[in-house]
Design a protein around this nucleic acid. Structure first.
Lengths: 355, 355
DNA sequence: CTATCATGTGTTATCGATAACAACTATCGC
DNA sequence: GCGATAGTTGTTATCGATAACACATGATAG
């Protein structure tokens, strides 16, 4: 890419002309009222004469005034921030959760502060701290595993904490999620029901992705519960798991266990990668091998053959977390904190062509 | 989903015990210094004795104190916020741009405020305003089309403005982008070079997605430049364009113009949807019809046949915008505003199996 | 041995808004 | 016609930090 600096006298002159941004005092002077009245005019639900408000609004427009919330929240002790930490923005599951949250917060005047942990609890810890510096009114985190200090920061934060996408054994406060292990087990049972016996699991190398680890654990549990003692696990690639990694993992899988009949992938993305590898090899799916994913990404319903997966209602996780958090914040504001809640979100095995 | 409220006496007791969060004054008292010294201890690049700092840090840890930036930024006049508006979080292209931005801001102490416009300039306007209320130190927007008031808000904001993903004719300040029309035209020329003549364009119904509209315009221009007078445009579905819409659009396309030899889709996602529709029909791609996408999403390189597309370096757009913005903020802080810059990001036609 | 300087710390005055309370003006009912 | 009440506006005191300046103290140079 090439830099192409333009000299724009126009822009420069604007810069020079720039005067200090107007404050509420400027507006108050212009409208002939006190700043308190201006403050009231810009906020609804306050008692103010319509004429006065109109006059103030006019002054605001003439001056191009924009309310300064940093200042406001200092005295009101309400920042209007909600912090949310997700592993990655580039994963449509978490992006959906973020969207659910955003939608729930729509119109409430709350602004979402998003942070990306990169699937690392250490990064999460440092993000928790920098988020708390902004004094959010609630915080949403992904998963129930944190560093000891991260957990302590959450506990001492004095704000509602919501853990999502998981069912932690000892949650900080609230939880909105589902059992990844149980969902994964359901998928194993589905494959078993279809007659598959030599079932493999394709996941990432590390346990950084705790939900991925839970899914693997659920696979193992379900397999032995069904009397299928030989477990075939391929660990390949670090999260975020990509499509390409799914393809490579499939190659390794069939090298190591040529007899494999079905594979559960830790995510739809890797399932799709594996599916395309089969296409390339001219293998029929599910004839040569059955494939299942996790997450019900758009792709698994669209591709051919469509991929069997677990629908996990990511949007609902975010949306429910948002609504819960609104209630919790309301409780805090009225000095009536709500009790800890656990909201279970639905999931279901979506049977498609690939199994 | 089922609600499952748990009564947790443990959580409740924590709530009751909760005392007012410690302030810098508490830390100062405990460490036997003034608040100013505490403030210096928590900021690097300040002159402070190592022993004093250690003592303060200890007090901070004992009290579980977390700096309050809202208060800090009021007096320092630096909020440490950067606002960025993207059309959708659920589009991996824009998510990549957001990630590029996030990465560029990493370690600078700047916090990204993300907003989603839903491809609507009206929503953008209201987001610009609510972002400005947080007094960001710079703002990044997607595209060069805004409402008149939105544009005015940007101009009068007094902070550096960066428009991305486009090359606006009269930019507010800085630009980081590329010509969508030119990129689209390059794709037409590629198809022409391969011998295709009856080339169609599949896009959305509205012009809300201005980049989509630019791509269509580029298609039209390139077609007539090549002497291909009959343009075949399918407009179907509102942004964000989904895979499914691509499939349906293909159906309409071949109904309306059965003779079509190749189709350019406004995005890889719709190209993939179209490709899968071909699979279902047992059509060979590119034998029966050639397909090309836009954006170089991961899927287009992984699927089979792999899809020809335009790689647009989304991450770089965000990353370059981030670096530019850091320089611009630095300039503002030193009262030496930088001149408006336009950074052209690369794009290239990536030829794959589908054409 | 003194003038100069760097270093470390405290003091004071804000930053720009809002909460809480006070005060004033109509309007109403009796 | 008067007190009560609702509605509207102003005053004062913060909110929790940091900038700017002042002021020690010890080190360094001439």
């Amino acid at each position: 890419m090439k830099a192409m600096p333009r000299s724009k006298s126009q822009a420069t002159s604007v810069v020079e002309k720039r005067t200090a941004a107007p404050t509420m005092t400027d507006v108050a002077l212009r409208a002939g009222v006190s700043t308190m009245t201006v403050s009231r005019a810009l906020k609804d639900g306050t008692s103010i004469a319509k004429e006065t408000r109109d006059r103030i609004i006019r002054a605001v427009e003439e001056l191009g005034y924009v309310l300064d919330q940093s200042a406001g929240s200092l005295s009101s002790k309400r920042t209007g921030f909600v912090a949310a930490l997700i592993p990655s923005i580039n994963n449509s599951n978490f992006a959906d959760t973020a969207r659910g949250l955003t939608d729930a917060l729509q119109g409430t005047g709350l602004q979402l502060l998003l942070g990306y942990t990169d699937y690392s609890v250490e990064k999460e810890e440092s993000l928790i701290e920098s988020m708390l510096r902004r004094r959010p009114e609630a915080i949403v985190v992904t998963g129930g595993r944190h560093t000891p200090r991260g957990r302590k920061l959450l506990q001492n934060s004095g704000i509602p904490v919501i853990e999502t996408w998981d069912l932690p054994k000892s949650p900080v406060h609230h939880v909105v999620g589902f059992s990844n292990a149980e969902a994964s087990a359901a998928l194993v049972r589905h494959l078993h029901g279809r007659g598959y016996r030599r079932i493999a699991f394709i996941g990432g190398t590390t346990n950084r992705d705790t939900r991925g680890a839970d899914r693997r654990a659920g696979y193992e549990t379900a397999m032995s519960a069904l009397g299928l003692t030989e477990s075939r696990v391929i660990s390949f690639g670090t999260p975020p798991i990509s499509m390409r990694q799914g393809g490579e993992a499939l190659v390794r899988l069939v090298e190591q266990w040529p007899e494999v009949e079905a594979a559960i992938c830790v995510s739809d993305l890797s399932a799709f990668g594996a599916l395309m590898e089969c296409h390339r090899r001219g293998w029929n799916v599910p004839g040569r091998i059955a494939l299942a994913g996790f997450g019900d990404f758009e792709i698994s319903g669209t591709c051919y053959p469509a991929i069997t997966t677990v629908g996990v209602h990511c949007y609902d996780i975010g949306n429910n977390a948002g609504e819960l958090l609104l209630r919790a914040i309301e409780g805090e504001r009225n000095a009536q904190p709500i009790a800890s809640e656990t909201i279970l979100t639905d999931y279901e095995v979506i049977v498609r062509e690939s199994t």
